[in-house]
């Protein structure tokens, strides 16, 4: 009974399961996407075809991707929005995570609960709540408008504060949505730090902010990278938030893939964009695992 796990067969099966999962649900679908991206568009169902001409596969979708500035602009918008959201999450999340490590144990549990609490409501519901707040006629918009009009000269007065359907709205909602993904890894890495190291630095003549820069910040880099990737990667491919609150004239890449696939029925083009997006995301992931490996050696 005790050795059942080590009995030949069982352990192999259990260890193989996650790999099987990865192969069936990631590698095979990804291979299909790569295959589609190399096909040409047809009017058949499914709307793809591999031509009889030579070459057998076609790189025309990739070529178009780099020629048509719709796609390049969409990539640029996505990466800029995701980057700004990541930096804002870091700026807001770092003090919060640091604060979590400095409060009493009871408070820490309550505050951690509050960080995770938004996940208990539907994500869509929360986006709609923001849409309500940002729309022209909401009390929130009127309050902002009145304070603006009160503070600035009369000829700068506005009838409402334009927030909806802009990159501002996208970044705001993404920061709100992804903030916990920044706070939790930051908290995990900051909590591991020995407070005696701070005391040692104080003792050696460093003022509080010097202690932060010299001791706390360099040791929390793995947490910053983990949190940054957990925000940046989903934010760059985000579909729902830009679709609901974003600027339709400057779509993000997730929206472009979705539209190209469903409305335009250009599967090869949509697949090519998806493959490029994935490659773009793999680069920061590799940076992350490089740091992880370095951290593991410590």
């Amino acid at each position: 009974m005790i050795g059942w796990f080590h009995r030949r067969g069982w352990s192999d099966i259990i260890i193989a399961l996650p790999y099987l999962w990865l192969v069936v649900l990631f590698l095979i679908p990804f291979a299909i996407v790569v295959g589609i991206s190399l096909s040409t568009r047809t009017v058949t169902a499914p709307p793809i075809g591999f031509g009889g001409d030579n070459p057998w596969v076609s790189l025309s979708s990739y070529a178009r991707l780099f020629q048509d500035d719709l796609y390049l602009r969409a990539f640029f918008t996505s990466i800029t929005n995701a980057f700004v959201a990541m930096i804002l999450c870091l700026a807001i999340g770092y003090p919060m995570a640091l604060g979590l490590t400095r409060v009493s144990r009871n408070w820490r549990n309550i505050l951690l609960m509050l960080v995770i609490l938004p996940f208990w409501t539907s994500f869509l519901l929360r986006v709609y709540a923001w849409m309500g707040l940002m729309s022209k006629n909401s009390w929130f918009n009127e309050m902002l408008r009145d304070s603006w009009n009160f503070l600035v000269p009369v000829n700068w007065a506005v009838t409402f504060v334009p927030m909806m359907y802009s990159n501002f709205a996208v970044v705001l909602v993404m920061v709100y949505t992804y903030l916990p993904f920044m706070i939790l890894p930051l908290f995990a890495s900051l909590e591991r730090l020995d407070p005696v190291l701070d005391e040692a630095a104080f003792d050696l003549g460093s003022r509080p902010w010097q202690v932060f820069v010299d001791i706390t910040l360099p040791q929390s880099i793995p947490g910053i990278i983990a949190g940054g990737l957990l925000v940046f990667i989903p934010a760059a491919g985000e579909l729902v938030i830009p679709s609901l609150v974003g600027d339709t004239r400057a779509p993000m890449i997730g929206r472009v893939i979705s539209d190209t696939f469903s409305s335009a029925r250009d599967w090869p083009m949509a697949a090519a964009v998806a493959v490029v997006l994935l490659l773009l995301m793999v680069v920061p992931m590799m940076v992350y695992s490089h740091y992880q490996a370095k951290g593991g050696a410590r």
């Binding site: 005696v196 005391e199 040692a200 003792d203 460093s206 001791i215």
Partner: peptide
């Protein structure tokens, strides 16, 4: 603490890793 001419050798040494 940072302005005292007193320094401490900590029990755990508290070296910066």
């Amino acid at each position: 603490a940072y302005a005292r001419p007193i320094h401490m050798m900590f029990q755990s040494y508290a070296l910066f890793p």
